[in-house]
């Protein structure tokens, strides 16, 4: 169906291209330029000065936040993947077609509820006089401080990423060749061994991509670290909002943002490479 590009074709293909170049590519490129601007007396002026980069990179706070964010996001993607896998496994292999469709539908619902509202709701569960502490108090335990801890931040990350990770894992699990599993069983391969030596390797691509998405979401999220974690320890996303919203230090915020994009690109590249390792696409 190869035809020369016509007015007809351009009418359909150009609008999106123009929109995304103008409002997606340009803003990101502008961020690069912005990171070299200077701020004097709260006024930004175009410049070509690496001062923002050197100031940010010389700060211990920045590197602490960087390490924290990296560790939290990595922990979140491992934790979410491990917790999601048994659920995805059960939905993929233990349910009838109809039940599975319902399970998928239910997992899609969270995407259309406000993440903010769900985070606020977790505050009701986790606060000092919250639901969980009242229940624990009923059996003579606690109260424990749960809100404003790293654990609460993790619950927030799970709230954000768990449904997506389950769906992505599920998507790769249902496409596993069932005869492979039957073959493993016929050869007297045990249940757990089948999971680890047949199912996980066959679904590797999907599992890694799911973990990658969780990493991206947790890495950039500022709601859970602030409203569940109490803002301590500081993450890069908190640093960006603080730097942007208070004062005119946009160029420095741009430095943080670009560092985040760079990190994400390296992580994504490594993950994709690992996901497709030894596979001819």
């Amino acid at each position: 169906m190869r035809r020369p590009i016509s007015l007809y074709g351009l009418t359909f293909s150009l609008p999106l291209l123009i929109w995304q170049v103008l409002f997606f590519v340009f803003p990101l490129l502008f961020l690069v330029a912005l990171s070299f601007w200077t701020v004097k007396n709260f006024v930004m002026s175009p410049d070509f000065d690496a001062v923002n980069w050197t100031t940010m990179y010389d700060r211990a706070v920045f590197w602490q936040a960087y390490g924290t964010t990296l560790a939290l996001a990595a922990a979140a993607s491992v934790l979410t993947s491990v917790l999601a896998f048994p659920a995805s496994y059960a939905i993929a292999f233990k349910m009838s077609e109809t039940t599975r469709r319902w399970a998928v539908f239910l997992m899609v619902i969270p995407f259309f509820t406000s993440y903010l509202v769900r985070v606020y709701s977790w505050q009701i569960f986790l606060s000092d006089n919250g639901i969980i502490n009242v229940i624990l108090g009923g059996i003579g335990l606690g109260p424990y401080q749960m809100l404003n801890t790293v654990g609460a931040t993790m619950i927030g990350y799970l709230t954000l990423a768990f449904p997506l990770v389950v769906l992505l894992q599920l998507f790769s699990l249902v496409f596993i060749d069932r005869t492979l599993i039957e073959a493993a069983h016929n050869m007297r391969c045990g249940r757990l061994r089948t999971v680890f030596e047949v199912i996980i390797p066959s679904a590797r691509t999907g599992l890694v991509i799911a973990a990658l998405f969780c990493f991206i979401l947790a890495f950039g999220d500022f709601v859970s670290p602030v409203y569940l974690g109490g803002g301590e320890p500081t993450t890069l996303s908190i640093l960006i909002t603080d730097t942007t919203k208070s004062g005119q230090q946009w160029p420095r915020a741009a430095v943080i943002a670009l560092t985040m994009i760079g990190t994400l690109m390296v992580v994504a590249f490594a993950a994709v490479k690992f996901a497709y390792k030894g596979k001819s696409k």
Binding site: L31, I216, T244, W250, A254, A257
Partner: peptide, 14 residues
């Protein structure tokens, strides 16, 4: 796939 916080900053500046 770009974190919203980065997109937000880029959009605001641009």
């Amino acid at each position: 796939t770009i974190p919203v916080i980065i997109l937000g900053l880029a959009m605001l500046a641009y």
